[in-house]
């Protein structure tokens, strides 16, 4: 049984349709990356799955528990770190974690011990007794994440957990998520950073206009764009046409402004050395030649393009 399962989720806000029939299944112990442009419906999906919002139609379970029919039981199995830090500004970091620990029905001593463990795990021990008002954005975010991990939930929802963090804080959060997954937690995370999905997620669901636009592993999604390519960056823009003429194969792409030419890397290294030879014979200087895998960014732009290029 999947840890998260959603079928036909619909949510409307007046005339706006935030979710237009979302289907999603996340196997236990895996990380699902929910990607999508602004307004795609990521937060709406997370809020429905965490019982904060009722769907207008459809059905969803978390850890096998129906989130609409049995929200109380579902809440005991899930953890949520919302898009915006939801911590008490006046209290200290430790007081915040103690508060949320108590509300998880931990005893006073257990709540304090857990708070200190989490503060240490997220590098907040030094700031433990400082009021959250004086925290930096990154510290606040880490505290927020810690608050979502108080009881090591079976299923954890992270809505853009690293937005606005520096690379180091981001890496810390990534490693915290990996640790949790290793211990058996299932994670659904939404993100704007494709690299994050690439790094963390076993499978990626691409959301657009409230619908699943694509779903698969990062490699599967990249294959949508036709696999690896040999990309040549020329020194001189005026050479672009001649290079394109010499390299002519189906699937050739030319970017005149960037002085770039690329062809499918059908035979990988052989294609690469062929390109190098052709250019050398014609004495066309190149700055850079490489085999490149399409980035998730390209997949993202390709699949969520609102205007299909002619």
């Amino acid at each position: 049984m999947p840890a998260i399962e959603a079928t036909g989720l619909v949510k409307r806000y007046g005339a706006d349709t935030a979710l237009a029939g979302l289907d999603l299944a996340v196997p236990e112990g895996t990380v699902c990356g929910l990607l999508g442009p602004n307004g795609a419906g990521k937060t709406t999906a997370v809020r429905i799955l965490t019982t904060l919002l009722r769907p207008d139609a459809g059905h969803a379970t978390v850890a096998g528990i129906d989130v609409v029919k049995d929200p109380a039981k579902a809440k005991a199995a899930l953890g949520l770190v919302g898009q915006h830090a939801a911590v008490d500004e006046v209290l200290s970091g430790r007081e915040n974690l103690q508060l949320f620990g108590r509300l998880h029905h931990l005893g006073a001593r257990t709540a304090t011990r857990r708070a200190d463990e989490l503060l240490a795990a997220f590098g907040l021990t030094d700031a433990a007794t400082k009021s959250v008002r004086h925290y930096s954005g990154g510290m606040r975010r880490r505290l927020d994440l810690a608050a979502g991990l108080i009881t090591e939930p079976r299923v954890l929802f992270l809505d853009e957990p690293t937005t606005g963090l520096d690379p180091r804080s981001r890496a810390e959060i990534w490693s915290a998520v990996r640790d949790l997954v290793r211990r058996g937690t299932t994670v659904l995370l939404t993100t704007q950073y494709l690299e994050e999905a690439d790094q963390l997620a076993d499978r990626i669901a691409l959301l657009d206009h409230g619908r699943l636009a694509a779903e698969g592993t990062s490699d599967e999604l990249k294959a949508v764009l036709g696999g690896d390519r040999v990309e040549v960056l020329l020194v001189d823009q005026s050479d672009v046409d001649e290079a394109a003429h010499l390299l002519a194969v189906p699937g050739l792409e030319v970017d005149r402004d960037a002085a770039k030419v690329s062809i499918p890397a059908t035979d990988r290294v052989d294609t690469l050395s062929g390109v190098i030879r052709t250019l050398a014979d014609a004495a066309i200087p190149a700055q850079d030649i490489a085999i490149r895998r399409p980035t998730l960014d390209e997949v993202f732009l390709h699949l969520t393009a609102t205007e299909v290029p002619a």
């Binding site: 019982t51 904060l52 109380a72 915006h84 939801a86 509300l103 029905h105």
Partner: peptide, 17 residues
Amino acid sequence: TRGITDRFRSLPMSPSA
């Protein structure tokens, strides 16, 4: 507005609390 209410609502605590 700060999302604290939502945090409370996502916890397995008593709703009337």
